[in-house]
Structures are given as structure tokens and as C-alpha cells.
Amino acid sequence: MLYTKKILPLVDNNVWRLTLYNNINATLLFLPLILIFGEVSELRTFEKISDLNFWNYMTLGGIFGLAIGYITGLQIQVTSPLTHNISGTAKACAQTILGCMWFQETKSFLWWTSNAVVLGGSCAYTEVKRREMKQQHKEMTKLEQVETEPLSKTNGGGS
């Protein structure tokens, strides 16, 4: 995430361009790894390689992967890598809790406590950032008001 924030200016802060370059790099790295780790024989013997349903799911997965990469770039562009990490951790924690509740799994008190700490910390971070943004907004509004006041108000009202 820090690397993304650092690299964005090199691609004119264009998240689409960064996403394109990331996917090209991943493809160029992926193909030699297939050869290095001997996966070519697996591909030759894979029974669903010509199954249209398999390729539909693979395409759908690729589209979602592209979307996640793009949204991640946008989030880092307008917030920070730390905020992205915290929101990602909170999302994963919430998904874990929902999954646990959905499948009616029994978990220990410490498990629930650790998840509560993660979500509580994420909420606290969000509240601190919200207050900072509110304060910055107030200061910007005051500054804009001072800049747009007529000259007669700022020099004592005399003519």
C-alpha cells in the first residue's frame, strides 16, 4: 500500500494506468512461474480446461479482481495506506464474525474478544479521522470566508 501511494505520481495519479501496469507485470511474472514450478503438465491434464462454465467463472473472478485492485488504488489515492489497511482489517473481521454467525459456529470468549478489539480499534480510528476532517473543514471554511470578505469589512469599515 505504501508502494502504491509512492508509485501513483509516476503514472500521473491515474489508478487505471497503475492497474493496467500491475496486471501486465503480474502476467509477465505468472507465465514463467508456471514453467518453473512444473504446472504445464497440470494444465495439459486439467479436465475442465475446455469447459465454458469454468472459463465464465474464471472471467468473473478476473473482473472482480480487477475491480478490487482499482478500488484499492482509489482508496489509497484519496486516503492513506494506513486507512486502507485498517478498513481492510475491519472488513475481514466483520466477514469472519458474520460467517461464524451464519454457520452457527461456537467460538471461545477470547475469540470474540479479539474480534471486538479489532472492530473497536477500527471504529476508534474512524472517529479520530472524522474529527480531524471536521476540524480541517471548519478551518478551510473560515479561511474561505476571510478571503471572500469585502475589503471594507477587513479595514474597519471606513471609506
Rank of each mutant, 00 (worst) to 15 (best):
L74H: 04
T148V: 09
G156F: 04
V15R: 00
Y3M: 12
V15P: 02
S159D: 15
I68M: 05
Y70M: 12
A26N: 06
T141S: 08
V117W: 00
K134F: 12
N56W: 11
S122C: 11
N23P: 08
L35W: 09
L31P: 13
T59G: 06
W112H: 07
I36Q: 02
G120T: 11
T113W: 05
D12M: 08
W102L: 11
M58I: 11
T72D: 12
C123Q: 00
T154H: 00
N23Q: 04
N22M: 04
Q136P: 00
G120F: 02
T59I: 14
T59H: 02
M101K: 05
F37K: 07
E39R: 08
T4W: 03
S114F: 09
L28K: 01
N155M: 14
S41L: 09
M101W: 12
N115L: 07
F54I: 13
M140R: 08
N85Y: 06
E144L: 15
Q77M: 11
F103G: 00
K5I: 10
E132K: 07
F30M: 07
G61L: 11
S159F: 12
Q75M: 13
T154L: 10
L8K: 03
G38R: 00
I86M: 01
V118F: 01
E39A: 09
T83F: 02
E127P: 00
V128N: 05
Y70S: 03
T154S: 07
Q136G: 10
I76W: 00
I7E: 09
K153M: 09
L98V: 13
G88T: 11
Q145M: 07
P81H: 02
K129C: 12
L2K: 07
I68G: 07
Y125P: 10
S122L: 06
L98A: 12
W102V: 13
N25I: 15
M1Y: 09
Y70K: 02
F37D: 06
V117D: 04
I97S: 02
M133C: 05
A94D: 04
E147K: 10
F37Q: 09
Q135P: 03
T4C: 03
Y3T: 14
F103R: 06
S152V: 15
D51I: 02
G38Y: 02
V117I: 15
I63T: 11
I68N: 01
L29F: 10
G158M: 12
P9V: 06
M133E: 13
T141P: 03
P32Q: 01
P81L: 01
V11L: 08
Q75K: 07
I86E: 02
W111R: 04
S50A: 15
A92L: 13
S50V: 15
Y21E: 10
Q104W: 07
F54V: 09
L52C: 01
M58V: 15
K134S: 13
H84K: 06
C93D: 14
N25E: 02
T45W: 05
L98E: 05
D51S: 12
V40P: 04
Q104V: 06
K6H: 06
I68V: 15
L66Q: 03
E147Y: 01
L35P: 00
N155A: 12
A116G: 08
E132H: 06
W111P: 15
I86R: 00
K153N: 14
E147L: 14
F37P: 12
K138L: 13
